[in-house]
């Protein structure tokens, strides 16, 4: 564990290395530390707070390869002023980074087991570091199953990579969309419909979920109907975040602070909260 910063609210300077377009509204930004001293180490599932000069700060999950040192990768959907400002940075420009914050996907617990990753929408981005990790240490894990649901074909992230992952041994990658166009020859239907094409071995499977809360509720139900125990299901939760270190109170979710107790939770810990409204 890295030592804690003297002032966790003050960002470190990073430079924009590259920005590339993933979809019509989503971009991936690569940041490099402006000073050699800054570390870009992180664990899959963690997030950073990204500061755009004078505009504001955003909590963004790290979506790059944890074993590729020297830069931090973020996939950002441009939906508001701050996200737009972030993805509009040019190479060489500065962005402030705090973090990484939060806990990580249970990749250690999943060793020797099949790994099922279920992503919805932008939720594939926080899961991508876990995919990299499993593929790099392929022999440590059983089968890798990636189920990915998006709104429409033009919303799907990382399509080339999805195809490349699907060619890896013992790896099944299925994508589906809620709304397929005429040219779409892939699956149409919500992400849970993909479970028809997967043979799960519930006793030796760990599932990791990331996507909108409702989507994760449907997926947990599906996983349980296939015999998975709630203790083998993990999900990444989202709430408003201002400080990321447990001071601002915004990200509270029942007894938890998403920023420091999450964002990844075992389903057993949040199940009763997920079933309640407006928690």
């Amino acid at each position: 564990m890295a030592t804690l910063p003297a002032d966790p609210m003050v960002p470190d300077p990073y430079r924009v290395g590259q920005v590339w377009k993933e979809t019509f509204d989503t971009f991936t930004v690569a940041l490099e530390p402006a000073h050699n001293a800054a570390s870009s180490a992180f664990s899959p599932g963690q997030f950073s707070m990204l500061y755009v000069f004078g505009v504001g700060e955003l909590p963004i999950s790290i979506s790059g390869d944890p074993e590729e040192p020297g830069r931090l990768i973020y996939t950002v959907r441009s939906v508001g002023q701050a996200t737009h400002a972030l993805v509009s940075r040019k190479p060489g420009e500065m962005v402030g980074v705090r973090g990484p914050f939060g806990g990580c996907w249970p990749l250690a617990e999943a060793r020797g087991k099949d790994v099922v990753l279920v992503a919805g929408g932008l939720g594939l981005a926080p899961l991508r570091p876990a995919i990299y990790q499993v593929l790099r240490h392929r022999e440590d894990y059983g089968r890798l199953i990636v189920l990915y649901g998006g709104r429409s074909p033009r919303d799907l992230l990382y399509r080339k990579e999805l195809a490349a992952w699907a060619r890896q041994p013992d790896t099944q990658v299925l994508s589906t969309v809620d709304y397929g166009g005429l040219s779409w020859r892939g699956h149409v239907g919500v992400v849970t419909t993909l479970f028809r094409y997967v043979r799960l071995q519930p006793a030796r499977t760990v599932a990791m979920l990331c996507g909108p809360e409702i989507m994760m509720r449907f997926v947990t139900r599906e996983l349980e109907s296939h015999g998975l125990q709630e203790s083998d299901i993990y999900l990444s939760m989202e709430r408003n975040m201002k400080c990321a270190v447990g001071f601002c109170g915004h990200c509270q979710y029942g007894p938890y602070f998403i920023c420091k107790d999450g964002p990844v939770f075992p389903y057993s810990r949040v199940r009763s909260l997920l079933e309640k409204h407006e928690i």
């Binding site: 002032d7 003050v10 960002p11 300077p13 420009e93």
Partner: peptide, 15 residues
């Protein structure tokens, strides 16, 4: 919490 000063394309965070 902090202030920051723009310097060309970059900025400096004055802690």
């Amino acid at each position: 919490l902090f202030s920051a000063q723009r310097q060309g394309e970059t900025f400096r965070i004055l802690s």
